[in-house]
Simulated scan of single mutants.
Amino acid sequence: MLSKGFEVEMYTGTPDGEIVGLSDKIVANLHGFVREPDSRNVEYTTAPLYRYERLLCELVRPRRQLRAYLHQLGNYTLIPGSTLALAGSDRFYRSDPGNPYHSYIEQTYGTTVVTASIHINIGISDPETLMRACRLVRVEAPLYLALSAASPFLDGNVTGFHSTRWGLFPKTPAHVPLFESHRHYIDWTEAQLEKGTMQNVRHLWSSVRPNGDHRPYSLNRLELRICDLMTDPIALLALTALLEARILQIAQHPELDPLQYSLLPASDRAEALVALTDANETAAAKLSLDAELRHWRDGRTILARDWIEELYQEVWGTAKQGGFSCFLLPLKKILREGNEAQRWLKQIEQGHDPETVMKQAIQTIAAEELVLADEICQPLVA
């Protein structure tokens, strides 16, 4: 098994769905939480762990601590979803007015970056294996977006996207190639920094990227960045199990490398794969599991849900051999009942408005999280 860790961004606000910036207080008084450029969301990071059972508690415990602290501040809670669902996209609320990088972000992107998401980090020590994994995960990243989509609203409106976050997010730089080697990644990154298309090594906002303590030179993990905020930690672990199994497969079978295994013409295969994947990301942001995608292996059209079902069958043996196949099972429920965005949109079809849907979601998630925390984590020490 590989090490796994999460970066979790969440909004804070009121039970009525109003998103309120509290990150300055949270970061000052709670260990393990860090600021985002806008004060209305806050981030916590889990340590890299191997066992899914331990990861479950590490995902839930900080939220339990944060909810308890928010209650001390007043009638505040955590808000699900990955966009400013009911209001607030008209202005930026700076969390650190003196930070020049935050100034650049606000001036360049505005509130299109004021989103909440999950970044999944999987440990891979060998840089060339990491690059192969990045290539495979990049062309399949739209499937993880389809499973996690949770942002169908913005400013109180139904947007037409299942993931409004990824539909609007300013992927930067605008064109990111499939990195053919570690050297290619180093040279490309240095060129972007010189041209100013990246402000620093962190300023690579694509669906997946190599990560490490001294990018681009020293790398130790793959970071999947495309997923919306999945409030159900069990569902998140299922998605992570799919990702881990896929990475184990590419590590064991280098011939799965899209640059080798795709039937697209070899002469411009790398660019064709990027174009195909970009189009698939756009389609998945729009219709998630019901999106029509093109398969990177042969260019055939396939529904996202059918492609995920194919992958599920393909990775089951690998996950079983690794001892974590049981964690894949909740994917079946997502395919059957829909992701968070689809479940919310079903309530809209039944006559509810976004405000009602979000209020109900806030209550439901808080209650489910409390039960889960009591079941899997030790009680907090007063």
Rank of each mutant, 00 (worst) to 15 (best):
residue 11 Y to H: 11
residue 14 T to H: 09
residue 15 P to K: 05
residue 17 G to P: 08
residue 17 G to H: 08
residue 20 V to W: 01
residue 21 G to W: 00
residue 23 S to R: 04
residue 24 D to M: 12
residue 25 K to V: 13
residue 27 V to E: 08
residue 29 N to P: 06
residue 33 F to G: 01
residue 35 R to G: 07
residue 36 E to C: 08
residue 36 E to S: 00
residue 41 N to G: 09
residue 43 E to A: 04
residue 44 Y to Q: 08
residue 44 Y to S: 08
residue 46 T to W: 11
residue 47 A to E: 15
residue 48 P to E: 11
residue 49 L to E: 11
residue 50 Y to V: 15
residue 52 Y to G: 14
residue 52 Y to C: 14
residue 53 E to T: 10
residue 54 R to G: 10
residue 55 L to S: 02
residue 56 L to H: 04
residue 61 R to T: 13
residue 64 R to N: 14
residue 67 R to P: 10
residue 71 H to I: 06
residue 71 H to F: 09
residue 78 L to G: 03
residue 87 A to L: 14
residue 88 G to Q: 02
residue 88 G to Y: 00
residue 90 D to T: 10
residue 91 R to N: 14
residue 93 Y to L: 15
residue 93 Y to H: 15
residue 96 D to M: 07
residue 96 D to E: 09
residue 99 N to M: 01
residue 102 H to I: 12
residue 105 I to A: 00
residue 108 T to Y: 10
residue 109 Y to C: 06
residue 109 Y to E: 00
residue 110 G to C: 04
residue 110 G to I: 05
residue 111 T to P: 08
residue 111 T to S: 10
residue 111 T to G: 04
residue 114 V to H: 00
residue 117 S to Y: 00
residue 118 I to H: 01
residue 120 I to V: 11
residue 120 I to M: 11
residue 121 N to M: 13
residue 122 I to Y: 07
residue 123 G to Y: 11
residue 125 S to Y: 14
residue 126 D to K: 09
residue 127 P to T: 08
residue 132 R to Q: 03
residue 133 A to S: 11
residue 133 A to V: 05
residue 136 L to G: 01
residue 138 R to N: 09
residue 138 R to Q: 12
residue 139 V to G: 04
residue 139 V to W: 02
residue 140 E to R: 15
residue 141 A to H: 00
residue 141 A to F: 01
residue 144 Y to C: 04
residue 145 L to I: 06
residue 145 L to Q: 02
residue 146 A to N: 05
residue 146 A to T: 06
residue 146 A to L: 07
residue 147 L to F: 09
residue 148 S to Q: 05
residue 148 S to Y: 02
residue 149 A to E: 06
residue 151 S to I: 02
residue 151 S to T: 05
residue 153 F to Y: 07
residue 154 L to K: 06
